[in-house]
């Protein structure tokens, strides 16, 4: 993997200069840029914000949104909210597992997809749904899965 250029993240720290409680927004923006939060990034954040490494890891591991592993090109979030569950989200999930050959939290070998479980996306009316990157796919049926995946 290519080395991460840490100084390229400086603009993020500058943006939050003087703000209180900036750890989480900073982690968000860095993850957006880098894709994940490996140790060297955590070290840089620790140094820049003066927050202990232990606390940074405590925070990263608490929030399911943060990851220390690189993600695939696309992230598939399978909604496991109530409405989706009631409308058969489990079938969708199983079909995805089957199609991609991975469990939730994992990334396909070709690095194309990372699959996660998400809580309600707030699109219950179209349950069951999945979200691929920022795009919601609703009113799903397991059979439609291959077709959708193939689009990516």
């Amino acid at each position: 993997m290519a080395a991460i250029k840490l100084s390229a993240l400086d603009h993020i720290f500058e943006k939050y200069e003087g703000k209180k409680g900036k750890l989480i927004p900073v982690l968000h923006e860095i993850q957006e840029e880098v894709g994940y939060l490996p140790v060297e990034v955590q070290r840089y954040v620790s140094e820049k914000l003066g927050v202990a490494m232990s606390k940074i890891y405590g925070v990263i591991s608490f929030y399911s949104f943060f990851t220390t592993e690189p993600k695939g090109e696309h992230t598939i979030g399978v909604c496991m909210g109530t409405a989706c569950y009631v409308k058969g989200a489990e079938d969708i999930l199983n079909r995805l597992k089957e199609e991609l050959g991975i469990e939730t939290g994992q990334t396909t070998a070709d690095n194309k997809f990372t699959m996660t479980m998400t809580r309600c996306l707030g699109t219950c009316s179209m349950a069951p749904v999945i979200m691929i990157d920022d795009q919601v796919h609703g009113n799903l049926e397991a059979e439609k899965i291959p077709e959708i995946i193939n689009k990516y």
């Binding site: 140790v39 620790s46 232990s54 405590g58 608490f62």
Partner: peptide
């Protein structure tokens, strides 16, 4: 020393040091 904190959450929670590497880890304080 801010060497340890809770890591993970819920039933998976445990006490851990920096990067979950143990008290003697490279980044441990």
């Amino acid at each position: 020393s801010d060497a340890i904190d809770f890591v993970e959450r819920g039933f998976q929670t445990k006490v851990g040091a920096a990067s979950d590497e143990g008290l003697g880890g490279e980044d441990s304080t």
